[in-house]
Simulated assay, not measured.
Amino acid sequence: MIPLIKVFSKLASVRVGALVAATCIILIALPVACSQPDVRGLVFKYYLEALEASKSGIDVSEAVRLLNDALEKLESGDLADALSYVEKVPDSLSRARASFEEARRRTLLLASTLLALGLALAVVAYKRLPTLYARFMVWYLSQYRFRRVRGRRCSTLKSTIISEEVAAVLLAIIVVAGVFAISQVLMAGRVVEPFCALGTLGPHKKIGDYPSRVVVGEPVKLWIYVGNYMGYPAYFRVLVKLGDRSSVMSEKGFNAPLIASFERILAHNESTLIPLSFRVEREGTNLRHIVELWMYNETVGKFTFTNRWNQVLFNATRTG
């Protein structure tokens, strides 16, 4: 009886020791796990800051480039490099804001100088207007001369300067040209019809060289084109799905298995090419490689389907 008690006591001590060791490991690992930064959350946070800055006219292209580099590093699993890119974004936004404020101060100074100069010229013109008008009338009347018109007895007053009709035409041309120039200045940088673009390219980055037949288990290489012409930095999410004839589209995209996803932040009038490599694990005919474009919607606070998608049809066989 006593030996059994000793055995159980030893087992209990071993279990207690193991429990204590496991607890120590958890207590040591927990702060390390908690200290790991949420890089994707930081990317999203700084994107919103860059978006707000762009609404004020600030150039955030450098910050957008850093955020894109961070997203690419996240896709490759390099968390340290992704974090290093994200940590540079606040300084980039600060420099962009400072540069914008300096440019605005210079613009205000130039506008104030031109306004003061214009007022000074107006005052001078107002004070000297009677004298200038009298001199102009003397010069204007000196351009007229009398001559006899053939076939008539009376003399007619003719002018050697530009006629009133020609002057009116020239004035109209000047007014139209001025209105056109002002409208171009006011419309500069304004996007009339914002849109985003999505495309699928073949292995050689061309439209049309898509594979019509693939071998099960072998890699298939394609390229995805995304373009932003929305007028502001846009956060895109590209979903790649493998479907067939039964796949249908809804407001949530196609009901097909997801095989890959990518995220990119693009400035206005910027585009990118995303390399894609995937494998087909089953045989089939008329399989559909479907690419969907989603975009972050600031109004609803989440990514929404843009209804832009494209597909590549192919057959999958066991042998080449």
Rank of each mutant, 00 (worst) to 15 (best):
E270K: 12
D69S: 08
R190Y: 06
G17P: 03
M249P: 07
E263Q: 13
H289V: 12
R279H: 01
F236N: 02
E292D: 10
G208L: 05
C154M: 02
V60G: 05
L67D: 00
I290F: 11
S92F: 01
E283I: 12
R213A: 11
N297T: 10
F314V: 14
L48D: 09
V248G: 10
C34R: 11
P257I: 03
D69C: 07
G253Y: 00
R279W: 00
A33E: 15
H289A: 14
E270V: 10
V169Y: 05
I2W: 08
V7L: 05
T23S: 11
L117W: 01
R105K: 09
F278A: 03
L66P: 01
L4V: 14
L109N: 05
V191I: 10
F44Y: 09
V43T: 09
A267H: 03
P233R: 00
V191D: 09
F314D: 14
G320H: 14
V32D: 04
R95A: 07
V7T: 09
E165F: 00
K205Y: 13
V175F: 14
T299Y: 11
H204P: 01
V60H: 08
S163L: 00
P90D: 06
V39C: 01
E101I: 15
A80H: 02
E52R: 09
V86Q: 02
G253L: 00
Y225Q: 04
Y229L: 15
L266D: 00
G217A: 13
S183P: 01
R318H: 08
G178D: 01
R105Y: 06
E75W: 08
I25G: 10
L287R: 07
K88Q: 07
R97L: 09
L170K: 11
R264A: 02
F195M: 03
G320E: 15
I26G: 11
T160D: 13
S247Q: 05
R95F: 08
E292R: 04
L186I: 06
L30A: 04
L171A: 13
G77W: 05
L115N: 11
E218D: 07
R318E: 07
L93Y: 01
S261V: 03
A316S: 13
E283Y: 15
L51Q: 02
K88V: 12
A125G: 07
A167C: 07
F100K: 07
L67T: 00
H268C: 08
